Computed example of a mutant assay.
Amino acid sequence: MIKTAIRSTILLFILLGFFGYSQDKKNFSNIPTILQQIIPNDRIDSWVLVYNSYGKNQEIRTSGGKKDYTPQFSGFNLFPSEDSFYYIAYFTGGKMNYITDLEGLKKFVGKIDNAEEAAIVLTTEGYMVDEEFKDVAGNYYEDPANYYLDLGKLTSKECPYQKTHFTLTVNKSSGAVSKIKDNGTYIELYNKKCANNPRLLKIQKKEEPKDEPKKSTQRK
């Protein structure tokens, strides 16, 4: 009887701990911090993560002995931006190599080691950490088996411009996405050129001429 009670108590604490662990949501801080969490799976002698803004290079992270590299004029972004980009210069096998696109970044990351790497890999499928709306599209929680990431996605560049947020379940062992939950649109922007702009439709409705009352004809 006592053993049964002890086992039940232990099981209860395990379940409570599991539930608390899985529901502890954390916001991703920012894009540079996410990229700094990369743990390459291939053997790399040294590498440097560079941020280029308006033509100026800034080294965000260096790992291993520093080697001379050639500044790049294009790169990748985890969040859409026209004025800046990132690139990685890495030295292996006696040769300097460069990563300037998301597919190359995905290969460099390799096996997913943390939630930040999961977010990085998912950018190759159009998802993004939206730094302006972290509560809906820039956070995650985890349990022993999976990462659960809330990320945004640009679902329309036409009228209206839309962003939708999703919850993606990523298996820690395989890195595979086992579930995608659509949480709906969190940004919907119209402009003057949008034919389906609700505000424009209201204005047009107000400007529509009212039907003039029919004049009654009097018999003489």
Results as ranks from 00 to 15, higher is better:
Ser174Lys: 08
Thr4Pro: 11
Gly75Arg: 00
Ser81Val: 14
Tyr54His: 11
Pro160Ser: 08
Ile39Thr: 15
Thr217Ala: 13
Met96Leu: 13
Gln23His: 12
Thr155Lys: 11
Ser29Lys: 03
Pro198Ser: 06
Pro40Val: 04
Asp182Glu: 10
Lys163Cys: 07
Trp47Val: 09
Thr217Pro: 07
Ala118Leu: 02
Leu122Pro: 01
Gln218Gly: 10
Thr155Trp: 02
Ile14Gln: 10
Ala145Asn: 12
Lys25Gly: 11
Pro80Val: 07
Ser8Ile: 15
Ile60Asp: 00
Asp135Lys: 03
Ser178Val: 12
Lys157Ile: 12
Thr70Ala: 07
Phe79Glu: 01
Gly138Ala: 06
Pro209Val: 10
Leu49Phe: 14
Gly64Pro: 01
Ala119Lys: 00
Thr169Pro: 01
Glu82Gln: 08
Ser84Thr: 13
Thr92Pro: 10
Asn139Ile: 13
Phe76Gln: 08
Val121Ala: 01
Ile2His: 06
Asp113Tyr: 03
Phe133Val: 05
Lys157Trp: 06
Asp182Phe: 09
Glu207Arg: 15
Leu154Ile: 15
Lys192Cys: 11
Ala118Gln: 00
Thr124Asp: 07
Met128Thr: 09
Leu15Thr: 03
Tyr141Leu: 12
Gln218Lys: 08
Glu158Trp: 04
Tyr87Pro: 00
Gln36Ile: 12
Gly55His: 06
Tyr190Asn: 02
Lys205Glu: 10
Cys194Ser: 11
Pro213Phe: 14
His165Phe: 14
Lys214Gly: 03
Glu212Ala: 11
Ile6Pro: 06
Arg61Val: 05
Ile180Thr: 12
Ser84Tyr: 11
Pro71Tyr: 01
Arg43Val: 14
Leu201Val: 05
Leu154His: 08
Asp68Asn: 09
Tyr90Ala: 00
Glu188Tyr: 10
Pro80Phe: 09
Tyr147Pro: 02
Val136Thr: 14
Gly126Ser: 13
Leu189Cys: 05
Thr185Ala: 06
Val129Thr: 05
Ile6Asn: 00
Glu125Ser: 04
Glu188Gln: 11
Ile6Lys: 09
Glu142Trp: 05
